[in-house]
Amino acid sequence: MKIKTKMVDDVAVIIPHGKLMGPPDTEDLHNEVKSLLGEGVKKFVIDLGHVKWMNSLGVGALMGSFASIKNAGGTLKLSAMTEKVRSVMLIMQLVKVFETFETYQDAVESFK
């Protein structure tokens, strides 16, 4: 899995590519978040548009990232969930906790 990160103003947009189904990919994602937090970033968007499939460990990585960001006083939003990922998030009722957007541009805009 590849993780691309770009800064749009003061918002970090993290875009994982591939499957989010356990280590090392899930750890890489959480580590990316932690390293950005270390640089002082507070606003995050994880764009899931290129995540083909995600299992419970993938969801766990999102939850771990959410907790790390929240503990640092930051905010995490999600964007571009595929139908498969959305259905997992719906079943787990995580859509009640994660703010989600159609595109990462929408998510970035919502921070303004």
Binding site: T26, G60, M63, G64, F66, A67, I91
Partner: peptide, 8 residues
């Protein structure tokens, strides 16, 4: 548990 661990 740590944040990434959960159960349904």
């Amino acid at each position: 548990t740590s944040a990434e661990k959960f159960a349904t």
